[in-house]
Design a protein around this nucleic acid. Sequence first.
DNA 1: CTAAAATGTCAAAATCTTTTTACATTTCAA
DNA 2: TTGAAATGTAAAAAGATTTTGACATTTTAG
Lengths: 66, 66
Amino acid sequence: MKNKIKELRKARKIRQEDLAGQLNVSRQTINAIENNKYNPTLELAMKLAKLLESTVEELFFLEDGK
Amino acid sequence: MKNKIKELRKARKIRQEDLAGQLNVSRQTINAIENNKYNPTLELAMKLAKLLESTVEELFFLEDGK
DNA sequence: CTAAAATGTCAAAATCTTTTTACATTTCAA
DNA sequence: TTGAAATGTAAAAAGATTTTGACATTTTAG
């Protein structure tokens, strides 16, 4: 499971801390997700996609045939 | 957070047990998600969408402005 | 209607995500 | 190059999801 969060976040010049703030989660959560430490919950993923004006399918993708 | 899993699953005449089997999760997990007991992990949500030939955004939706 | 199949539900345990606090490393502007 | 800001990381605790096993209720086929 990988994602393009860092990419889209930087394109918009937002800090991890600000993203976290807008989503009411901790900065560490954003950081961990960006660095593929674990699978976020669906709600957080959807809010992230919405904030970054993207879709879940575009922002996150399963590797190979999973 | 609501979803259309039961709807799409029935349209395909699949049982909860079979959906669970194909996703390697328990039947109770499928049942609980169908009945909005909690937010699934993103990976499970994406696999569900894929299996039901849908997208996460189409299968799941946040209420109001969340 | 009746039996079997499918679904709903519960509770305890296991597993995983998220928070918090704290510090190390990297990046970037001055 | 130096210092400040941003990011990376770690570990313990809290909170949420998932599993397991068991049983109740609903649905469906015969």
